[in-house]
Computed example of a mutant assay.
Amino acid sequence: MTIIISLLLLASLLPHLTFTARVNVGIVNGIEAKPHSRPYMVSVQTKVQHLCGGFLISDRFVMTAAHCRNNSPVLIVVLGAHDLQKRNLDRIKVDSYHKHPQYTNKSYHNDIMLLKLERRVELNNNIKLISIPMKEEDIKADTVCSVAGWGAAVTNGPGNNHLMETNVTVMNNNECGDKWGKDDYSSSQMMCVYGYGGSCDGDSGGPLVCGGTAVGVTSFGDLELCNSPKLPEVYIKISAYLPWIKSIIGKVN
């Protein structure tokens, strides 16, 4: 009798345990990244709270999304992290903010920003740069890429302290434009991905990585549902902004 009661109790708990485990998985349907396997990843924070992702493209600059500063005037970046709860993380103040000059908070067009750090970064095994495209080009549809971040696993859910990752697939540009419409989507500035997993709240600003190169900046998706099957996630196409990027970074000695 005792064994039967125990089995019934376990059965009643299983659905709850399964649900809890899924909630604790960061990025929608993602897996935990191998610690420090993405040493370019940056946590952009305000008041010691993770706000957005970002990525290190030089020893003085982090790239992220412009909208990450809409309501947060002061930002710091955390480098070389996997578990954001660990103490003694490398935190660096932002010296200056460089939103794209044509970005406004009325839309996600030109949603790209460079953060000039207060000091140069000392690169090591846990802190490294990621390359960006050398010339303007489109990534072919059906290319498998990846995204990572400390964002939520479900819409309006809590963030994750451990860096999570998942694979995504590049969508045909015209198909994405048809889904979002010309007011929201610019085929020259943006690109879309889809897949079983994807970005969510708190992953904005992180990189879309294809073949070891950061080709996109996580920008926006369906406001009502992360990883929506109807409205794909949208990324700012980095290669469309190379002259502007070089004009900002080139000013630093």
Rank of each mutant, 00 (worst) to 15 (best):
G195Y: 00
G206K: 02
S204C: 10
M113V: 08
V144W: 05
G80I: 05
A81I: 03
H82R: 05
N125D: 15
K179M: 14
L117P: 06
D90F: 06
S107F: 01
A11C: 15
I31C: 08
D184G: 01
D111N: 12
M113E: 14
V234K: 06
P232E: 06
L117A: 05
T46W: 09
M191G: 02
K34H: 11
G205W: 02
E137N: 08
L114S: 07
G26C: 04
L129C: 04
G159E: 05
N71K: 12
S6D: 14
L10G: 13
C226H: 07
S186L: 00
L17M: 10
V121W: 05
L56Q: 06
G53Y: 06
E137R: 12
D183V: 14
R22P: 02
A148V: 07
V121E: 09
L9G: 07
L115Q: 00
N124T: 10
L231P: 04
T64D: 04
G197W: 04
A148S: 15
A240N: 11
G250F: 14
A66I: 03
T143I: 06
E224I: 10
K47G: 03
S239K: 06
G211M: 05
I112A: 01
A240H: 15
P133R: 05
L231V: 06
A11G: 12
I130F: 12
A214I: 05
Y196E: 14
F19W: 09
P229C: 02
M191T: 03
G221W: 01
A153M: 10
T169V: 14
A153Y: 08
H36R: 02
V147A: 02
C176Y: 00
L51I: 13
T218W: 07
S96A: 12
E136D: 15
T218V: 15
V170L: 11
N71C: 00
P73M: 00
L14F: 10
V42S: 03
K93N: 13
L84S: 08
P158A: 09
S219T: 12
